[in-house]
């Protein structure tokens, strides 16, 4: 009986406590922690429900490589990058710091989520 319980637990435990970022989540920590705030998590899944890729990656000119955009709060306040929408009109304003700056301490900039390759997942 005990052996069976252990076996069952071993099977169920990974399903009960998986730790996995959502596919396409991007951690942005170019300046955040140096400035004393949590790193940013950008969830692709949330944004692509509402905007086609072309809006950010063409109209706003955001490069498709995590860490290559050098986004900081001054640029956001000027209406660039996230600030094109996060201005209190299209989406919540940048004054809601904690909604973007929501990551655990110590995370490095990069694309996260399930399927790692040598490429984007490692940037």
């Amino acid at each position: 009986m005990i052996r069976r319980c252990i076996l069952l637990l071993a099977i169920c435990a990974p399903a009960a406590t998986p730790v996995r970022a959502e596919y396409g989540d991007v951690v942005i920590n170019g300046y955040s922690e140096k400035a004393g705030v949590r790193p940013v998590i950008f969830p692709h899944w949330f944004h692509r429900i509402r905007f086609q890729c072309r809006v950010c990656h063409q109209e706003l000119g955001i490069q498709m490589r995590a860490g290559s955009n050098e986004i900081d709060m001054a640029k956001i306040s000027d209406g660039r990058f996230c600030g094109a929408c996060h201005n209190g009109e299209v989406a919540w304003s940048a004054e809601n710091c904690d909604l973007c700056h929501s990551a655990r301490a110590g995370l490095k900039t990069g694309v996260r989520g399930g399927h790692k390759t040598l490429g984007p997942g490692e940037y």
């Binding site: 406590t17 998986p18 730790v19 996995r20 970022a21 959502e22 989540d25 951690v27 949590r38 998590i41 969830p43 899944w45 949330f46 429900i49 809601n96 904690d98 909604l99 973007c100 700056h101 929501s102 990551a103 655990r104 301490a105 995370l107 996260r112």
Partner: peptide
């Protein structure tokens, strides 16, 4: 879909965690 507080990225103690939409919901 993983709840944000358990995804290894979000700080479960952060103030945003109860406000942000959960992936599973969307």
């Amino acid at each position: 879909w993983q709840d944000l507080a358990d995804d290894g990225l979000h700080d479960p103690a952060g103030p945003g965690i109860g406000v942000l939409q959960q992936p599973g919901e969307a």
